[in-house]
């Protein structure tokens, strides 16, 4: 009989504080997830991805046909988080100043004229960039710069964006005429690319049975609490073998035949960041390989650039990522 009897040794105060912070952060995530699920029927993976990206401090690109609840997700999320919300409808005539704001000539109280900066819709905690691929690359780049640096520069003056800052962009894979697909370098700025798929039969039936629009939920957290949760998630450690597995996975996306460009270093960072959030939401104090494996498709699918050969074979990025995940050995 080989049974171990633990002689418990109390953990330190710092560890206990860290444990409390992790619990608090997990509760924040759980509340947001439940709030979203109370409004949005189905789309469980998308909701999980949105919450994960929110806690990881990244941005999400939602791809899906119209009417699948993309905008509803962001609206509900903004209500749940309790921060400011802005929606930008990207159109071909959208100007960068329409996104980041502009300086205007205003009459002062003394009757004089002055230049005053008027903030664009980007200055919000949650920004919905609807149909981002319909805007010109110029307007797209204004948004993407803000996403990466969390500041905007207007008239040579940097202006920080509010924290937390979370962009959720949508794009429509159909009606592709006259659109401006996002360049790969800019796609890399999105932590996740979530694919919103058609609802299944049961869910669709439940949606149809709804007589009224669901009542908007009340806020379940605050931007400050969200920031604390994000900080707690970042502290979750990963064992070396998990970090190496994530790195191997990234390299594995370069190997399959037909891949023009594999994922880059940002993908490795994204994998670990999202893995931490997954561990946090599962109530663990360390990242597991399984956490990384679960987020791999959402993190990698928009970072793998397929060549003609893969497209000719009918392969898509998801299949390439699945191959890479399957072929990456565990130590």
């Amino acid at each position: 009989m080989t049974k171990l009897a633990l002689v418990s040794v109390p953990i330190s105060d710092e560890a206990r504080t860290a444990e409390d912070a992790l619990d608090s952060a997990r509760r924040v995530g759980t509340r947001i997830r439940e709030g979203l699920a109370s409004v949005i029927l189905g789309q469980q993976d998308v909701l999980d991805g949105v919450v994960t990206a929110l806690l990881a401090g990244g941005h999400v690109l939602l791809e899906g046909a119209p009417g699948l609840g993309k905008t509803q997700i962001v609206r509900t999320l903004s209500t749940l988080v309790g921060g400011s919300f802005a929606r930008i409808q990207f159109t071909p005539d959208l100007m960068p100043s329409d996104v980041v704001g502009t300086s205007m000539v205003v009459t002062t109280a003394s009757g004089g004229k002055d230049m005053t900066y008027r903030q664009g819709p980007i200055f919000a905690n949650l920004v919905l960039a609807d149909e981002i691929n319909r805007a010109t690359p110029k307007a797209q780049s204004a948004l993407l710069e803000a996403m990466a640096e969390r500041t905007v520069s207007v008239d040579g003056q940097p202006r920080p964006l509010p924290a937390p800052f979370f962009v959720l962009a949508t794009e429509n894979p159909i009606e592709m005429e006259g659109v401006f697909p996002l360049p790969e370098a800019q796609l890399d700025r999105f932590l996740f690319k979530l694919v919103v798929r058609m609802l299944d039969l049961e869910t669709l039936a439940r949606v149809g049975a709804r007589a009224d629009e669901p009542a908007p939920p009340s806020a379940v957290t605050s931007p400050a609490e969200l920031l604390e949760a994000q900080a707690a998630a970042r502290k979750i450690p990963a064992a070396p073998h998990v970090e190496r597995w994530a790195a191997r996975l990234v390299l594995a996306t370069h190997a399959p035949k037909g891949v023009r460009y594999g994922a880059g270093p940002r993908a490795a960072q994204a994998l670990m960041a999202c893995g931490r959030v997954k561990a946090l939401l599962d109530g663990r104090a360390a990242v597991a390989i399984e956490d990384v494996r679960r987020v791999a498709p959402d993190v990698l699918r928009h970072r793998v650039v397929l060549g003609f050969e893969a497209e000719a074979q009918g392969l898509d990025a998801d299949e390439i990522v699945a191959q890479a995940v399957a072929s990456t050995p565990v130590e």
């Binding site: 040794v9 953990i11 330190s12 710092e14 560890a15 504080t17 860290a18 444990e19 992790l22 502290k235 979750i236 450690p237 990963a238 064992a239 070396p240 073998h241 998990v242 561990a279 599962d282 663990r284 104090a285 360390a286 990242v287 597991a288 390989i289 399984e290 956490d291």
Partner: peptide, 26 residues
């Protein structure tokens, strides 16, 4: 999900910190 594996790995590599301590304790 790799609770023991991570705790063992943290002990092997000598990593420290409150959350690492928490992970090993768990």
């Amino acid at each position: 999900d790799e609770v023991v594996a991570s705790g063992h790995a943290f002990g092997t590599t000598g990593r420290a910190g409150p959350v690492v301590e928490l992970a090993r304790s768990r």
